[in-house]
Amino acid sequence: MLKMKNVSKVYRTDTVETHALREFSLTVDEGEFVSVTGPSGSGKTTFLNIAGLLEDLTSGTYELDGRDISKLNDKERSNVRNEKIGFIFQSFNLIPELNIFDNVDVPLRYRGFKADERKRRIEQSIEMVGLGSRLSHLPAQLSGGQQQRVAIARALAGEPRFLLADEPTGNLDTNMADSVLDLLGEINAAGTTIIMVTHELGLADRAKRNIFVRDGQVSDGAPELHLASMAAG
């Protein structure tokens, strides 16, 4: 379903070559809830960017839903992002000038849905995250947890197969974080594959499977061990 094989990513400047991922291989099956952890600079964000088609890979193969991603042009890649992937960011990344409705509307516009179809999906997904009464609010009028819920609604509105979450609770207090994670659990239970990048140990427990990344590679061994050692270090 998501299949990375020997993926490498090298950032080059005039003087330095940084290997963010080296020979990275990973398969994620339909319906999984995978957490990706690792120390700062381990390459987990790069992994997420490549998985989400936000960046190109330097070498290796990446198949998503059986399609070889490296062969796609910009428009096709944009379409894949739009239709198959939903993003959730640490800092929510809502557009401040747009109200809740219009924020959720953004990916649907690029999808080319008709107006009534968009409306139905927006209302449905906002209802799902429990903000049905706030459609015309601006992001700044909502709490952090509510903003993240809107971001989740935006990610879900297009009914993606994958949800990529990057430290989704990093900017939230514990209560809000818990409710967001509960929501992610429900979404996963409904069949959406979730890959969540985080450095918080507690978060990783929520996932059904943990991946530990170090030095741009999936590290072998028991995740718990690494987590413990990381916590110690």
Binding site: S78, R81, V106
Partner: peptide, 16 residues
Amino acid sequence: AKNTSLRRALGASKAE
């Protein structure tokens, strides 16, 4: 730029 970057992530192609 951040806005643009977000739109790209949400599926806007360069042409759009």
